[in-house]
Design a protein around this nucleic acid. Sequence first.
DNA 1: GAGCATTTGTGCGTATGTATG
DNA 2: ACATACATACGCACAAATGCT
Lengths: 251, 251
Amino acid sequence: MTADGPHQLTPASLARRQGVALWRQIQQAIEAEIAGGSHKPGARLPTEAELSARFAVNRHTVRRAMEELEGRGLVRIEQGRGSFVAEDVVDYRLGPRTRFSENIRRQNREPNGRILRVAEVPAEAGLAEALGIRRGRAVILVERLALADGRPVVVGTHHFPAARFGQLPELLAQDPSITAALAACGVPDYRRKVTRITARLPTPEEAELLQQSRSRPVLVTEAVNTDPAGVVVDVTHARYAAGRVQLVVES
Amino acid sequence: MTADGPHQLTPASLARRQGVALWRQIQQAIEAEIAGGSHKPGARLPTEAELSARFAVNRHTVRRAMEELEGRGLVRIEQGRGSFVAEDVVDYRLGPRTRFSENIRRQNREPNGRILRVAEVPAEAGLAEALGIRRGRAVILVERLALADGRPVVVGTHHFPAARFGQLPELLAQDPSITAALAACGVPDYRRKVTRITARLPTPEEAELLQQSRSRPVLVTEAVNTDPAGVVVDVTHARYAAGRVQLVVES
DNA sequence: GAGCATTTGTGCGTATGTATG
DNA sequence: ACATACATACGCACAAATGCT
């Protein structure tokens, strides 16, 4: 038994045929090693082949364990590169005056935005009601990817009534800040009324945009913003990379 | 080609070797059928064997697709029984006066609680700081499963300073309501200060308690409650079944 | 309760595709 | 071009949970 590396904490001691799946025992072993500091945040983990040799199981079995760890947010798997221990998360404050840039700068990180898509579409039933317009009326749809220190944090889809915000597309083409564009449309301030929060696994597009694994959940929020007079300005559907943000609600 | 059931919408037309994984094409096909109403909420889906025959792929490939759908919250898979289309969700309001029972009753559902564990443990660093006590001081730990209409919704782990709430264990043994027990300890009212929200896949224990699949995310909240004088009453760590609740924040 | 069929869960072996460096 | 490492897919076998007889 000669130690040939730093990963020989448990050479091979799985309980077979005892009610606990092998992949789960492996997942627990690796999880314990991460928690115990054997693998530091950002560090590269052994390859699947190495792990399957170490635990004396098929590579599929190791993969099942790694997928679980990835979904739980402990590791990040990258095709062709390897698997890595997960790193830190950013706090994202939800409140009546939620603004992405302020929020990120408060964390001493550099905010950044990229408009992915701008389109004019007819309002379907639910959206029309939320916006207080008639069904089928034109809506400006803006899809935007927001980043902190260059890393994607959230994809937001905004819906503005076209009647009032028809100039938005041109404004956003010049400056990707939504707050600035709204100000130019005569809405210098707005407040968030309600936010609904759920979680689910991402669609492939979301995973791609957020540069996040498909097995890592996204936090999904549905929010309604109003102007000072109480008139609905927009309805936003945002998807946050759960591995990189933590939503903070203050009462 | 004789139709022998209601599931022959796409007999077998997958694009092999074209960049899109087979399991993903299958997932999309089933997702479209659910969205289109071919499979109604709660209805049983074809078995894996049937689907693998229909799409002319291996059962593993179908399973991969179904796991994705389960994680996305569209279906629910039960060993030995089959797979089912997912059903409705409950709104759960987060605010300064968050109370589980009120919250659930507002939705015309019957709230219910079950104390899983009560213990006295020493406070580790982070917890001690949040509670405003010294590290190592005794803390009453209460773990509780809360249900709506008999279905598990959230597992909460509460931490109270033992010095002030030493009688909690006995009180909870009689009535599982935490609000009532606190009132008996001289805290008739309390408010939630901050709530941190994240999402991740559940641990096996959480999945078991919430009667939820391991591939369905849980919404995780960390909250701090204070009494009217501003003194911290407890720190709560709650895990919500993302498939059954939606958190609602009002500003 | 025992026995059995059905259905999902786990695991192996193998082969090939695709991204990275 | 090449080696490495993760991703997809097939086929087989058996385990475990469920429901029915």
